[in-house]
Amino acid sequence: MLAIFQDIQARLNDTPHLMRLGRLFSETVLIEIDSEEFYLRFDRGRLVDVTPGPSRKTPWRFALRTDAEALHRFWCARPEPGFHDIFGLVKIGRGRIDGDILCLVKNLRFFKDVMALARHKEGVTA
């Protein structure tokens, strides 16, 4: 899973329009997958590091908590209903969002598009 987030990091930092969308976003986001933690530290739209947890001393602004199977289905080229969006995961009971949700909503397109960077292209199953 760490490799996937590192791939997201590389893709984001090579996607100018997304970095422009996130230019006011300098926060740390916690992604919790089953019991695994990953701290994503953003600085002005760049993902500067991905640090695996656990950590009790890393402050974060908001958290997305889900499970590995749900995330893999989220990253399918054509996800099933509910697995196609982070709020969809919440709606179907496969995800939870905690913390400063208003901060997330203000940067929602940016964060959704970042999370979707690992989505497989049509016809590619790897």
Binding site: A77, P79, I86, G88, K91, V105, L108, R109, K112
Partner: peptide, 15 residues
């Protein structure tokens, strides 16, 4: 508007 659009994108099909 931008926040609303980002929210309702959850309701658009990947198809």
């Amino acid at each position: 508007g931008e926040m609303g659009a980002a929210l309702v994108s959850a309701n658009i099909s990947p198809f």
